[in-house]
Design a protein around this nucleic acid. Sequence first.
DNA 1: CCAATCGGACAATCAAGAGT
DNA 2: CTCTTGATTGTCCGATTGGA
Length: 273
Amino acid sequence: MSSPGNDAADDRPQDSPVSHDALQPQMTMHPVAYPGMPMHMYPFPTNMSLSQPLRTKRRQVKNACTNCQKACKKCDDARPCLRCVKYGIAEECVDSQRKERKKGIKRGPYKKRDGKGSSTSDRADSPGTSAAGLPPAIAAAMPPAQMSYMPMGFAPAGFYPPYPPGSSPKPGEAPTYMPPFYFAPVAVPPHLAAPAGQEGEGAVYPVGTQFFSAPILATHYGQPYAPYMMPHNGQVPVPAGPFAAYPAIYPKPPSTGGLNGEGSSGRSGENGD
DNA sequence: CCAATCGGACAATCAAGAGT
DNA sequence: CTCTTGATTGTCCGATTGGA
């Protein structure tokens, strides 16, 4: 991987997180997992599943930036988003405006869904309530509260702070966790190579106080652009340790002078009202 | 070959209507 | 008041097209 690559491929498995508007004035970091992360990217522990035919459900960010929106490309909750950073237009990365939903539309009588169950519980996308499309038997066998985000196997309960920060899950609702660590896609130092026999998926590599799981290493290392730990004001909040030098390793992303994005897109010619 | 474009599938949201 | 339904709106996958 040495080229910026095309979006369809690039935008997929590396982005992340969270609207930190009030949160990270100095830097924006992309955590390993986040609520909007596509299901197939969730760091499930090894004992779950890799053999299951996981039906991956596409997750969407709540609000794409204007650039991604125009280009119909995957965005993330951080600002600037990965894609804008990648294209060197981070300063143009702003949330798109959402238009208000119409009100007062009349709707006619409802039809019940063949008597069984509520539609809500049927809906696999109900956050925190389902096994994300797993077969019912498998879903039933799983601890319900852990389904929306399964903390990595090694992490004790309470290890992760709730997300959004400062929030707490509502009663009956599974908590959503945001892991407190972030990946830094640098070359794996030789001394961090997996111990013999542990290099399978799910192996965890302790790196100072940070952790990197094998899938993440495999997925994120070697990205063509800087790790998504962006020092915004010249500060480099890098912990001492094996990765202390990574900012020097990674140059700024190439300033390609712009992203696609002219043109129209999406629902062609809508938004008139 | 790579990047841009774009149609359309899919997901999220939320107000109206129904049930308790 | 709460739950359910379904329309609306937004996101982004993936095929196609165009340029270097």
